Computed example of a mutant assay.
Amino acid sequence: MESAFRSALMAWLRSDTTLGPQLNAILEDGPAAAPPPQLAIVASAAGEWGAKGAGGRQVRVALELQVQSDAPEQATALAAAIETRIATMAPAQDGFRIVVTRFLRSRVERRPREIRAILFEYQFSLLATPPSNAATPATGDPT
């Protein structure tokens, strides 16, 4: 479920018509060879979670945005767009449902060559659902 979630999250971020064109790369595994600005998952972890009669996972994801600029405005605008996009991800996904999206923390770091790195950490609570391509059992009279 963690892998499917990571792929769905990256696809959701890539599909944003405003955010996508502003980034050189949006990757599930980073950092990318592409020059900044870029966004990538740099770490994730999953643990058991669920509700009565429904299995699930609690997934923590760390995303890193890298921007090359000596002015923080570009990084701030991109960070806000990323946070908004994550907050609006549809709960119903193929094979799971997002029950809780929780922002945990962010950290900004200056790196050599005017790179600003912003780390976002989120926690998602997911419940398993049947995949949309799962065969449905036959009903009715077999004759």
Score class of each variant (00 low, 15 high):
residue 2 E to C: 10
residue 3 S to V: 12
residue 4 A to D: 15
residue 7 S to H: 15
residue 8 A to W: 01
residue 10 M to Y: 09
residue 12 W to H: 03
residue 14 R to E: 14
residue 15 S to A: 13
residue 16 D to S: 05
residue 16 D to Y: 05
residue 18 T to C: 02
residue 22 Q to M: 04
residue 23 L to Q: 03
residue 24 N to G: 10
residue 24 N to H: 15
residue 25 A to W: 05
residue 25 A to N: 10
residue 25 A to D: 12
residue 26 I to K: 03
residue 29 D to E: 14
residue 30 G to N: 05
residue 31 P to I: 01
residue 31 P to G: 02
residue 32 A to C: 12
residue 32 A to L: 11
residue 33 A to G: 06
residue 36 P to K: 04
residue 37 P to T: 02
residue 38 Q to D: 12
residue 39 L to D: 08
residue 39 L to Y: 10
residue 41 I to Y: 11
residue 42 V to I: 15
residue 42 V to A: 10
residue 44 S to D: 12
residue 46 A to S: 13
residue 49 W to A: 03
residue 50 G to W: 06
residue 51 A to W: 11
residue 51 A to P: 09
residue 52 K to W: 11
residue 53 G to S: 14
residue 53 G to C: 10
residue 54 A to T: 09
residue 56 G to Q: 02
residue 57 R to Y: 09
residue 58 Q to N: 05
residue 59 V to F: 07
residue 59 V to R: 03
residue 62 A to E: 13
residue 62 A to D: 15
residue 63 L to R: 03
residue 63 L to N: 04
residue 65 L to P: 09
residue 67 V to F: 11
residue 68 Q to A: 09
residue 70 D to I: 11
residue 71 A to L: 07
residue 73 E to Y: 04
residue 74 Q to L: 00
residue 74 Q to G: 02
residue 75 A to M: 02
residue 77 A to D: 04
residue 78 L to F: 00
residue 78 L to H: 01
residue 78 L to K: 03
residue 80 A to R: 00
residue 80 A to W: 01
residue 80 A to S: 01
residue 80 A to H: 00
residue 81 A to W: 01
residue 81 A to C: 00
residue 83 E to F: 03
residue 85 R to Q: 11
residue 85 R to A: 10
residue 87 A to I: 10
residue 87 A to K: 08
residue 88 T to H: 01
residue 89 M to T: 01
residue 91 P to A: 01
residue 93 Q to V: 03
residue 94 D to S: 06
residue 95 G to R: 05
residue 96 F to N: 04
residue 96 F to M: 07
residue 96 F to I: 05
residue 99 V to N: 02
residue 99 V to P: 02
residue 99 V to K: 02
residue 100 V to G: 07
residue 101 T to D: 03
residue 101 T to S: 12
residue 102 R to T: 11
residue 105 R to K: 15
residue 106 S to Y: 09
residue 107 R to H: 14
residue 108 V to Q: 13
residue 108 V to M: 15
residue 108 V to I: 14
residue 108 V to S: 14
residue 109 E to P: 10
residue 110 R to L: 07
residue 111 R to K: 12
residue 114 E to A: 12
residue 115 I to E: 08
residue 116 R to D: 05
residue 116 R to K: 15
residue 118 I to Y: 04
residue 119 L to Y: 11
residue 119 L to N: 13
residue 120 F to V: 08
residue 121 E to G: 12
residue 123 Q to A: 13
residue 124 F to E: 03
residue 125 S to Q: 13
residue 127 L to E: 13
residue 127 L to I: 15
residue 127 L to P: 10
residue 129 T to V: 13
residue 130 P to T: 13
residue 131 P to K: 10
residue 131 P to V: 07
residue 131 P to T: 14
residue 132 S to E: 12
residue 137 P to K: 01
residue 137 P to Y: 02
residue 139 T to Q: 09
residue 140 G to W: 05
residue 142 P to F: 06
residue 142 P to V: 06
